[in-house]
Structure formats: structure tokens, C-alpha cells
Simulated scan of single mutants.
Amino acid sequence: MDWLVQWWDGVELWVVQLPVAVQFPVVMIVVLPACLGVARLIDRVADWGAKNPASAPEPEPEPESEKVAA
């Protein structure tokens, strides 16, 4: 896991050292698709959870209608 932290620190240092005019497009090219991907993943998981029959409460039985003597 240490290699991932080292790599991320290197990327972060590289982005911070770029001029702001270059930082913005670089961040938008990377962050925008990443956020879109995470949002789609969350949406699919939420849809799956909503459609999962195990998560739905059991329907209550309908009450019997009262018989009326004529």
C-alpha cells in the first residue's frame, strides 16, 4: 500500500507545480470522468438495491371482506 501513497504524492506534487492555466484542464480531464463514473456506479447500485426483492417489505395480507346478510 505504501507504493500507492508514494505514487499519489508524486502525482499531487506534479499537479501542484503546474501553472494554474494547465492545472484546470488537467484536473477537469481526470476529475470530471472520475466523478461521472462514481455517480453512475452509485446510481446502478441504488437501482439494484431498489429492485432487489429481498430488500422489499413483505406485502400485508388483504383483510377479508365482511359478509353482509341480506
Rank of each mutant, 00 (worst) to 15 (best):
M1L: 09
M1D: 09
M1P: 01
D2T: 07
D2S: 13
D2Y: 03
W3Q: 12
W3A: 11
L4S: 06
V5P: 00
V5E: 04
W8I: 10
W8K: 14
D9F: 06
D9S: 10
D9L: 10
D9C: 06
D9K: 09
G10H: 03
G10P: 00
V11D: 00
V11F: 09
V11N: 10
V11W: 07
E12F: 10
L13V: 01
V15I: 15
V15P: 00
V16M: 10
V16Q: 15
L18T: 04
P19N: 14
P19L: 02
V20R: 15
A21M: 07
A21I: 05
V22A: 13
V22L: 10
V22R: 13
V22D: 13
F24T: 14
F24K: 15
P25D: 04
P25L: 10
V26D: 04
I29Q: 08
I29T: 08
I29F: 12
I29V: 11
V31C: 05
V31M: 14
V31I: 08
V31N: 04
V31P: 01
L32P: 01
P33N: 09
P33Q: 03
P33A: 07
P33Y: 04
P33K: 05
A34V: 12
A34H: 05
A34F: 08
C35F: 10
L36P: 00
L36G: 06
L36H: 03
L36C: 05
G37A: 10
G37L: 11
V38F: 14
A39G: 08
A39V: 09
R40C: 05
L41A: 11
L41D: 14
D43S: 13
D43I: 04
R44Y: 11
V45G: 01
A46G: 02
D47E: 08
D47R: 15
D47Y: 13
D47H: 11
D47W: 14
D47G: 03
W48E: 04
W48K: 12
G49P: 02
A50P: 00
K51H: 09
N52I: 02
N52T: 03
N52G: 00
P53L: 06
P53G: 02
A54I: 06
A56T: 07
A56V: 13
P57S: 11
P57W: 02
P57I: 06
E58H: 03
E58S: 05
E58R: 09
E58G: 01
P59V: 01
E60A: 07
P61T: 02
P61Q: 06
P61R: 02
E62K: 03
E62W: 02
P63W: 01
P63V: 01
P63G: 01
S65L: 12
E66T: 12
E66A: 14
E66V: 15
K67D: 13
K67P: 01
K67Y: 14
K67I: 15
V68P: 00
V68D: 12
V68S: 10
A69P: 02
A69S: 10
